[in-house]
Design a protein around this nucleic acid. Structure first.
Lengths: 155, 155
DNA sequence: TGTGAAATGGAGTGCCT
DNA sequence: AGGCACTCCATTTCACA
């Protein structure tokens, strides 16, 4: 889908605050409500906007601790991968999960209340499949965490 | 703030899809619209729900490449940290930024269109402050990425 | 594509239980 | 705390440029 400058401005507004009403957004981008509304619909239909969610304060729901888990494996079969993928995706504490290039095979971001809770997740992780090496790093401070993507490359 | 089982169910619904109307959520949690609406307001006022945002498809805005950047530093002064923090936070391609325990001092998640674009971000990063070691790992596949926090620890 | 007005339907309010 | 009835206003639709 082709995105013009106004679409990008609309996206930028919505990915920071989706509660604003259409008329307010329209004003900011110099449009009246209807065309602005049509553009938003178009962005949703095209899948540029995938969905709209409420962001929850991690500490207020008692998951203030973030752990990054690096996983190395020795097995490299398709069947192993499918099992591992399903195991990890089913763990709600895992909020990010990537297959990586380089010396680490997989990287996970896990959120938990404390180290004891992390240990349970860790055990669930290694119980599912055979892993060669698992290394955990704890985040001491969250300096930036945003769902707003940079829009400067869009076209 | 104390969260009961109904609050948690409401949070769980909203952090997956905030576009549902109050009446629909109310039905799912076995309440009528008004008390459900009041609970949602209370969750917002208490800061449990921080905000509501539109999620954008990274590939559709041309930032389909994710890079994790591990930073080690030799300088450990407060002034250095403040400069570094401000430099990194100002880079829109950096969507996550943590101070870590262990051998890596900082971890960044960066989203860019391609490796060439990453190189520019990398240069911007090292131009800002003195860094001892910067190591980049590319994500080959995004297996899970969610803004929905696990709600099993909330109370 | 954009504008303006009209209709629709959900959010927000007050009051009662 | 929850439910019901009502008001109000933003969203959505429609006719037109």
């Amino acid at each position: 889908m082709k995105l013009d400058a106004i679409d990008i401005r609309i996206l930028d507004i919505l990915q920071r605050d989706a509660e604003q009403q259409v008329a307010q957004i329209a004003e900011q981008v110099g449009l009246s409500s209807t065309p602005c509304w049509r553009r938003i619909q178009r962005l949703k239909e095209a899948g540029v906007i995938t969905r709209q969610v409420a962001l929850v304060d991690a500490r207020k729901v008692n998951v203030g601790v973030t752990v990054f888990v690096s996983v190395r494996t020795s097995v490299h079969t398709e069947a192993w991968f499918e099992t591992f993928k399903a195991t990890v995706q089913a763990i709600p504490e895992v909020v990010e999960f990537y297959r990586m290039s380089g010396d680490v095979d997989y990287l996970l971001r896990v959120v938990v209340p404390d180290i004891a809770a992390y240990d349970k997740v860790y055990k669930r992780l290694i119980a599912g499949t055979q892993l060669h090496d698992v290394s955990s790093s704890f985040a001491m401070e969250e300096l930036k965490l945003t769902t707003a993507l940079p829009l400067g490359y869009a076209s």
